[in-house]
Deep mutational scan, measured.
Amino acid sequence: DEFHFHWNGRDIRVRGDSEELRRLIEAIKRGELSEEEIERAIEILER
């Protein structure tokens, strides 16, 4: 699976399928994380 979302003017695409990944992306979409937490998560996910 590939998750695709927009954040902070960026087009983010992440491959993978796990419950943890889904929860993280939902939290990002709901605005539950700080900008710094989101940046760090995206860096890890894009590897």
Rank of each mutant, 00 (worst) to 15 (best):
S34C: 04
R30P: 01
V14P: 02
F5R: 00
L33D: 02
F3C: 04
E2D: 12
V14C: 01
E46R: 07
L21N: 15
R10G: 00
L24P: 00
E26L: 15
I25W: 15
R13T: 14
R15F: 12
W7K: 00
E39R: 07
A41P: 00
E19L: 14
R13S: 12
V14L: 08
I12D: 00
W7M: 02
E19F: 15
I38G: 01
E37M: 08
A41L: 09
K29W: 14
R23Y: 10
I44S: 09
E2N: 08
D11E: 14
L33N: 03
R10T: 02
F5L: 04
H4M: 10
F5I: 03
I28Q: 01
V14D: 01
I28V: 05
E19Q: 14
E43K: 09
D17Y: 07
I12H: 03
E35K: 11
I12T: 00
E20M: 13
H4I: 15
E20W: 13
L33R: 03
H6A: 03
R30N: 10
A27L: 13
F5G: 00
L33I: 08
D17T: 08
R30D: 07
I44Q: 08
D17F: 08
R47L: 12
I38M: 13
D1E: 14
R47H: 13
E26T: 14
E43M: 14
E39S: 10
A27M: 14
L21K: 15
E2R: 03
E19M: 14
I25G: 03
D11L: 15
R13V: 15
K29F: 14
E43L: 13
E43W: 05
E46G: 06
D1A: 09
H6M: 06
E32G: 10
E32C: 06
L45D: 01
I12R: 01
H4N: 05
R40G: 07
G16H: 05
S18L: 07
E2L: 05
I38Y: 03
L45H: 04
D11S: 14
L45N: 02
L24A: 03
I42M: 05
R23C: 06
D17C: 04
I44G: 06
D17G: 07
D17H: 08
G31V: 03
N8I: 02
R40P: 03
I42L: 07
S18G: 08
R15I: 11
I28W: 13
R10M: 03
E32P: 02
R47M: 14
I38S: 03
A41H: 05
G16M: 04
V14A: 04
L45I: 09
S18H: 07
I12A: 00
I42R: 01
E32Y: 12
R13F: 15
E20L: 14
L24M: 08
I38T: 10
R22T: 06
I12W: 15
I44A: 10
R15P: 13
S18N: 10
L33T: 03
E46V: 10
K29M: 12
F3I: 06
D11I: 15
R23A: 13
A27K: 15
H4F: 11
F3H: 04
E43H: 12
L21R: 05
W7N: 00
R30G: 13
E43Y: 08
I28Y: 13
E2G: 08
R13H: 14
F3S: 02
I44E: 10
A41G: 04
E19N: 10
I28C: 02
R13G: 04
A27P: 00
I28T: 02
G9F: 01
E19V: 14
E20N: 09
E32F: 11
I25N: 03
D1Y: 07
A27C: 04
E37A: 12
G9V: 00
R47Y: 09
E37K: 05
R10N: 02
E20V: 15
E2H: 15
I44N: 08
K29N: 10
R47S: 13
F5P: 00
S34Q: 08
D1S: 07
I28P: 00
A27N: 09
A41S: 06
H4G: 03
